[in-house]
């Protein structure tokens, strides 16, 4: 099965400092990766590959223009009244798609990173997360996509996935975003009415309450029922929590201090 239809899903982001509406960087990476794959396939394959950029949500958002500047020549926008309808609206629009690209996490709304999973579940597509690079498998039999996945500590993994599939792009994907004003002027946004006339019965969701002031989260700690002895100990012998300064001693001794620290905190394995 070769790729014929590629789609990238884009959402409206929000600048972390100014709160200004903007493109969501993670989605832009996915879109740029899709654009590159499409033009590569169109240059090498005989059949034409179509690429669409899809947004479901509020119609009046100027931030979508950013995606035009970043390379989308055209954005399909589905006007969805409620957030709970987004998955259904997208799914209805993506049934004939072979490959759906999304960012890993939104900058607006719940930011749960669940959308691609819910979409894949709804459409019955495969899903690969943490993608850094994608290419069509050269082997016709495996018939799908080869994905380079991000794993922490400098590890990478190559996997193949059957199409149709949802690919979630990792924020560190080596993609250069190029914002060009001229493309913003020539690109178009096409607004569509939501194909859903009524919502499917709403699933159970958590009721979130947003706090007005951004605070540091409180770390969960076990309640210490310390003995008087232990309390006394902790009060007198304070744990050596950082800030240790070693001035005396020769270089060899200092090197041993460093080694000791690294071992103590299991930062090295020798």
């Amino acid at each position: 099965m070769s790729i014929k239809n590629i789609a990238a899903l884009v959402s409206v982001g929000r600048h972390p400092v100014s709160g200004e509406a903007r493109h969501c960087r993670n989605d832009s990476l996915a879109m740029t990766l899709g654009l590159a794959l499409t033009s590569h396939l169109n240059a090498t394959e005989t059949n034409t590959v179509s690429f669409k950029v899809l947004h479901a949500g509020n119609a009046n958002n100027t931030a979508l223009k950013d995606y035009l500047a970043l390379g989308a020549s055209h954005i399909d926008m589905i006007d969805v009244a409620a957030e709970s309808l987004i998955i259904d609206a997208l799914a209805a629009n993506l049934t004939n798609t072979d490959l759906i690209l999304t960012g890993s996490r939104a900058e607006n709304g719940l930011d749960s990173g669940m959308l691609p999973y819910q979409l894949a579940e709804k459409l019955g597509f495969s899903l690969v997360a943490n993608a850094l690079a994608i290419q069509q498998t050269t082997d016709g039999l495996t018939g799908g996509l080869e994905v380079l996945q991000f794993l922490p500590k400098g590890k990478r993994r190559s996997v193949t996935v059957q199409l149709p599939a949802v690919i979630v792009v990792h924020p560190l994907a080596p993609v250069e975003l190029r914002h060009a004003y001229a493309r913003q002027v020539t690109g178009t946004i096409n607004q569509q009415a939501s194909p859903l006339t009524h919502a499917t019965p709403q699933e159970k969701t958590l009721k979130w309450q947003t706090e007005t002031i951004l605070r540091k989260p409180i770390k969960l700690k076990a309640r210490e029922n310390k003995s008087g002895h232990a309390r006394m100990l902790s009060a007198t012998v304070s744990e050596n929590k950082g800030g240790a300064v070693v001035i005396e001693g020769n270089s060899v001794e200092k090197a041993q201090v460093i080694l000791g620290y690294l071992r103590e905190h299991r930062l090295i394995n020798f």
């Binding site: 975003l177 914002h179 060009a180 004003y181 001229a182």
Partner: peptide, 30 residues
């Protein structure tokens, strides 16, 4: 180069994005 390709090198693209989104060069809170 900038308006049709967005190809300014180095930290220039990030700076331009900061200016668009925060109206400061460094992406600060105004």
């Amino acid at each position: 180069l900038t308006l049709t390709q967005g190809s300014a090198p180095g930290k220039a693209p990030q700076t331009l994005e900061n200016l668009r989104q925060t109206a400061t060069v460094g992406g600060y809170d105004r």
